[in-house]
Design a protein around this nucleic acid. Sequence first.
DNA 1: TTGTAAGCGTTATCAC
DNA 2: GTGATAACGCTTACAA
Lengths: 321, 321
Amino acid sequence: MVSIKDIAKKAGVSISTVSYALNGSPKVTDETCARILAIAKELNYTPNAAARTLKKRESKIIGVFLTDFSGPFYGHLLQGIKEYLNGHDYELIVCSGSQSHRFLPERMIDGAIILDAAFTDEELLQHADRGHKIVVLDRELIHPNINQVLLDNKAGANLAADYVLEKGHRKLYVVAGPQDSYDSDKRLHAVRQTVGRYKDVDCTELPGSFDKESGEKAARRILEAYKEPAAVLCLNDEMAVGVYNTVAESEYRIGEHIHIIGFDNIELSAYVSPRLATIDYSKHKWGALAAEQLLKLIAGEKVEHERIYVTLVKGESVGDV
Amino acid sequence: MVSIKDIAKKAGVSISTVSYALNGSPKVTDETCARILAIAKELNYTPNAAARTLKKRESKIIGVFLTDFSGPFYGHLLQGIKEYLNGHDYELIVCSGSQSHRFLPERMIDGAIILDAAFTDEELLQHADRGHKIVVLDRELIHPNINQVLLDNKAGANLAADYVLEKGHRKLYVVAGPQDSYDSDKRLHAVRQTVGRYKDVDCTELPGSFDKESGEKAARRILEAYKEPAAVLCLNDEMAVGVYNTVAESEYRIGEHIHIIGFDNIELSAYVSPRLATIDYSKHKWGALAAEQLLKLIAGEKVEHERIYVTLVKGESVGDV
DNA sequence: TTGTAAGCGTTATCAC
DNA sequence: GTGATAACGCTTACAA
């Protein structure tokens, strides 16, 4: 491996002069600077990240932590984060799994964006206590080193519930997400609140886990008890797709017997037939805003918690044309 | 930041003893070892990754490089890589964008898995020349430090072409991928070869770029020239979905006027209607095998290039029921 | 303008 | 068994 020492030797200068030249310090003559740069290029020199990180105590790398790599909307979210970071001299790495949690305390990264229920609140607070900067996308955590950029789950769930209720539905099912999911929890509470304003609504809550299988399972229970047209509020789109799968194998029809609305507006929801009604928000903006907040936190600027707004996407899945 | 120096001071021992204890060396007494470990925990000690990487000249981190984060099958691929690596004491980070290319030469990572046309062959060969270990998923590159784990594009394209040809189609369209894509290139050549064996086939090649938009564009050209039922070979599923979109807005029907087959078997292809015929392969296995080859390369073991086999998925999109 | 030297947090080679 | 000490590659006062 070629280091600044090798360059110094070949150029007949000291390593500090090489370091200055490489970092474009004005202290060194244009002439020697040029000579050193030429030799560096000739020797194919590349700086050693570990050494620089060790010395400067920063890596210029931000880590994004996801529960898994398969989320249907991670692409846009990560793209938003990446674009912001690259425009601000930071690099992005994506991590998943508990083993990668060490990256933060080990100072491999300068900050973290969390969308991963595998992190406990305690763990994040502990990191924050030790001075690490964190932006959370999936929980509420109050700490000077932690900033929240959260979806407006309440507004979204209200929009969804009002939509089917206004269509006249009085037989309702809600398919919930995992117990430990912040988003599911908020959405469920908002639905309960909205539904509670109507006294003639029969609302049944079904467990789920934000994946297709749990949607299929819920659908089987709904179909078994079928007596009259019912509306199904799925707390995310993936479960709604699961409901589609099961209903497709039955004598019933989505948009006719089973009306359904999801949450997230994933790409698939535009391709299932009939089109799934859902709640939309900009994943790109969510990511970009999270990145912006994190860099501000790192720079020591004061930041407020942020909220991502949502809109209703109508669809034939609730009988709308 | 608490370092081994702090632990040494508090324990009244030298830093080398602390290091030994922390690394479970048998040289230190169980007693002192336990005491040191207790103090480390008490002080909330975590090792500094940069320092360890600098000294040991390895990071135990593997980087996966993707063109972007939105690929519809990256989830399974990454999961396969992650599972293998985590079972072998390595951690995975996912990178995208030319800025992140520096991770390899800067020795931030111990090896790289490449599925990213933004890397040139020259760049990769240069890294390999400097001793970096690389597994390529998207090109053929011969170098002792580079291993290939490639899809059997030829077999897949042959399967797809034979499938529609055996259905009796003689009017064919091929929607190609980007010019710089290895997979597209291989698939296109295989299709040409298969089609060449029939002298009565009229085959038109259309440009594309592996995204929906290019599929839509190709479909518009196909529909404008429509005279009789035609078969469309899309060199990946995303473009096939684009064709669906455009055909859906016309008077023609997929599986009746326009027969179509894709490549990749992405999740969406099972949800478009009618179901898209396509070429399937295990993305999970592809990732796991790539990871395995890379660790062998790093360990200095001899490795052979590998191939991922493909199968045909029939579908109503070619009139099959 | 350039050189000297200390130090970032580890690991590892020696002595004792 | 344990302790000095050098080294990894780099940055940055401070000295010359």
